[in-house]
Amino acid sequence: MKTRQNKIMGLEEAVNKYVRNGSHISIGGFTINRNPMAAVYEIIRQRIKNLHLYAHSNGQGVDELIGAGCVKKIEIAYGGNGKFAATCICFRKAVQKGVIEIEDYSNYQMTLRFLAGSMGIPFLPVRSSLGTDIVKKWGFSRESRLKDPKLPDEKLITMNNPFGDWLNTAKVVLVPAINTDVTIIHVQKADKQGTGRIQGLSFADTEQAKSAKHLILTCEELIDTEEIRTSPDQNQIPFINVDAVVHVPHGAYPTACYKYYDYDPVYLNDYAGWAGNENLYKKYLEKYIYNIKTHEDLINLIGEKRLKAIKANSSTGYATDLIRS
């Protein structure tokens, strides 16, 4: 029941309860910021497979899920990680080897697809991608779409403006709604009932959150209901959408969490090196994920020194003068 007062759960329990083999899933954040990494690592630890992943530009989390073999199909706009990886390495290798099936959209299209899902409508129109291969080339064939009841029969549809030339527009592209089985987002603050507060850019987290059948909220800080309700105008995630609240400090690590900590350039650069080499990547999975019990253990393994280096400056919200090269 999504209106219950207390949804606090452990991460292992929440992932076990809502993320299944073959689930259709999305995660919050964008490239190197506010990915729900603790939950991503827990999914990998629980050896969940055959996920159908929907992503706009959720770099690090998406790449790790792919690298660990959790993903079968992906619908995505951008598989990169800023300056840390022009193209995410596990993503690139998996697509080149045909290990995962991929469907390409643009960032706005993916965002509108989540919005349509959150609004309960089957599609939304957009003026982007007309004349491009995003319209012409389908990663998932029509036959495979027709066979899969969880996918729309069409990737997208181009149509003439049904309002004639209203707003001087001849054509629009219709993109189909997404309703995931489960979405996981990491927020700065939440209460036990699941009201969530994102600080800084919200990316497409609110649309993703509201398009999900089940929503797991991991949070940096768990605060009293009374406190979170003193400034309701600062809250974006309604508790009526939330199934589980998990308190995980450093839950976005090694990606950033505005006002709390920066991304860890050491981890992200090391990761890029490991991801390029099969043996090193196996060792990475063992050491940093499989042999770790909880996210707290990972944080302890990383150690005080590195955590201190990435601690956010209270005024800027990031680690000022952090060595990032």
Partner: peptide, 24 residues
């Protein structure tokens, strides 16, 4: 942009902005 962001989602694009919205 007091410091160079390493990605368009870097917290460095959030600091001192006129407002922080989302993709939509």
């Amino acid at each position: 942009l007091d410091e160079i962001p390493m990605a368009v989602a870097d917290s460095r694009v959030m600091f001192g902005a006129s407002l922080n919205g989302g993709l939509l």
